[in-house]
Amino acid sequence: MIYLYAVTILLVALSLMKDRGRTLRALRIGGKRFLKVAPAFLSMLVLVAVILGLIPDELMMKILARDSKWIASASAIVLGSVAVMPGFVVFPLCGILLGNGALYMVLSAFSTTLMMVGVATFPLEKVYLGTRLALVRNLAGLIIAVAVAAATGLFFGELL
């Protein structure tokens, strides 16, 4: 995080030294684009907060640590696609689930869909990619996540 600030300040300073007018134009472009997508960002935050509130941790644990690996994997995919979580929450949670006996395959399906497929990020994605491409990207993400989960299952000897 500090690096991001340092790099930004450094580059703005360099840019100012080189060309004042251009730098101001850069800031204006950045600001304009930010304002344009701000409503979509806010919608995303509301959806994330609501979805996260609707799926409590205990429920998640219960679902993902199911005995049947097929049901657990399928629920992991659904749960991962609907829920949104920051990375620093996902992996510690997965670590706990692993300790509770969840399969690697299930955790892989869960974490990969969490990151690649997003119902809550869709309003934002739509603004940048357009509805069609956003839909196709999420679908492709889902397929990749299933493939990754299956490969993880094979590798750790859980699938067969």
């Binding site: 991001l4 580059l11 251009r22 850069a26 800031l27 472009i29 950045g30 600001g31 930010f34």
Partner: peptide, 15 residues
């Protein structure tokens, strides 16, 4: 995070 990201995008755009 976002203000930095959008400032960098602006700089990218002009430079």
């Amino acid at each position: 995070v976002l203000p930095c990201v959008f400032i960098l995008i602006g700089l990218f755009e002009v430079w």
